[in-house]
Design a protein around this nucleic acid. Structure first.
Lengths: 252, 252
DNA sequence: ACAAAAGTGTTGCTTCTACACCCATGG
DNA sequence: CCATGGGTGTAGAAGCAACACTTTTGT
């Protein structure tokens, strides 16, 4: 690549920001980190960072994901194995005023991860946390004094877009399994749908629907009683990536 | 904004590229322009250009759209009026090797336009044209010697992503009306679906479905016989943006 | 009269929903 | 025994594909 010549084009900074979602304690949660620098010092923000000059956008997102969570993004074409997370591009945000310091274009990515022990951001425990998206998007509406200040920059908007993408995408794709461990029960998968959509689903119809959708789930042979009650069959994610028929989100 | 200091972040060029789709003569077509400069000199490419330092991404895309087609992008929240086109962000492409000259990140946008008289790129007639996406994406597969060389840069990939987005989005949104003039008949709308999906649809069931979907179409009162046969009712696009129930693309 | 495109009615099939009911475990 | 969650059966409602049939124009 020829050396940089600023006279030929306007120079931009390019970053990746990550919307990392998981389901914890029946709630959809996002990973947020505390900002150590100005602007928005001390406020919560989405994890992210600069794209390097020799690096693809998806590589930059995958690198940030490892740095922030230790998660490995796996190729969506291959079946999920180990602690792999789903990672896809979400949208790009480039309002000239979104960062007061300089002109930054941020390519946001969406990651879906199974429930993890705890976030680790440089070992600093209180500089990163999983927060219910409900609290992040509608602060003050919730329960006790979750004195949540709004997210830094335009990150509330980015998070909202990511949540909306996840909500609609689990309808017609097998992505909901990305929130589950490698082996899971139909009930666990149902609780994922309930948490992401914020609804309650009929367990009987859900079971029939999900096991009847070709390629969605494959029985792994084992059973578990970790949820109590009658032992449940364990499944792995199947090869299908798009669901036919789709899962239907109940009307309002 | 403070003056540019290249030591603080890697400098990128940021462009917008446009996938402008329309339906002409029963075929889905895209707007392409001939490149006058190296690299890929003389090859067809998607229209696009640099984002200015004081300009939002969507503004840059709208500006390029006007420059290339004379179309005005209208706010998707408002009802379509005049020669408005639908414009939305598609995806961002940032492979370090996608432009041999420098590191360029391109924010691709998707525009859907009604059939237009003719493209005008600086008044030069043979430097811009509507080409069937079939020919652009599968050169050589087609009919006569459409000696179509592949598109410049990674534009074939971008075009394919845009076409796929359009195909899936007319399923569950009212976007197909963006391909129609302000007033149109049910048959004209059906021919849009047939061209974009590459299928044939039952006119009777289509009519029932589309007129029965609340908010999709509102009768404008008039009729027309411009398609021959019995006069057809004229409609305008309704207020609904998401279709419930969705249109169903026939199985393969 | 005939062709062509617009609409309407009807029938059989698939799919969804709601809920009754049975199953297999832990305490 | 009983609470808990897992799983199957079934009946009514809703949605859809296929196609017969009627309507209204231009030629």
């Amino acid at each position: 690549m020829p050396p940089y010549d600023p006279s030929t084009f306007p120079p931009f900074a390019v970053t990746v920001d990550l919307v990392v979602l998981t389901v914890r304690r029946h709630a959809l949660c996002a990973l947020v980190v505390r900002r150590g620098e100005t602007p928005f010092q001390g406020r919560w923000a989405l994890p992210g960072g600069f794209v390097r000059l020799d690096e693809d956008l998806s590589s930059a997102a995958a690198r940030e994901l490892v740095e922030e969570t230790g998660l490995c993004a796996h190729d969506p074409a291959k079946p999920a194995v180990g602690n792999g997370a789903h990672l896809e591009q979400l949208a790009t945000y480039g309002d000239p005023a979104r960062d007061p310091r300089m002109r930054v274009v941020s390519v946001a990515h969406l990651a879906l991860a199974p429930d993890l022990p705890a976030p680790r951001a440089g070992g600093d425990a209180n500089s990163a946390r999983w927060a219910p998206v409900e609290d992040l998007l509608h602060p003050g509406t919730g329960r006790e004094g979750e004195q949540a200040a709004p997210l830094a920059f335009d990150h509330a908007r980015i998070l909202a877009d990511g949540v909306e993408r996840a909500r609609s995408k689990i309808e017609y794709s097998s992505l909901a399994t990305a929130f589950c461990p490698p082996e899971f029960t139909v009930g666990e998968l149902r609780r994922v749908y309930e948490a992401v959509w914020g609804v309650v689903l009929d367990p009987r119809n859900f079971h029939r629907k999900v096991t009847g959708t070709p390629g969605f789930l494959v029985p792994s042979g084992g059973t578990t009683t970790r949820q109590g009650g009658r032992p449940a069959q364990l499944f792995r994610a199947g090869a299908a990536t798009v669901l036919n028929p789709p899962m239907l989100r109940p009307e309002v």
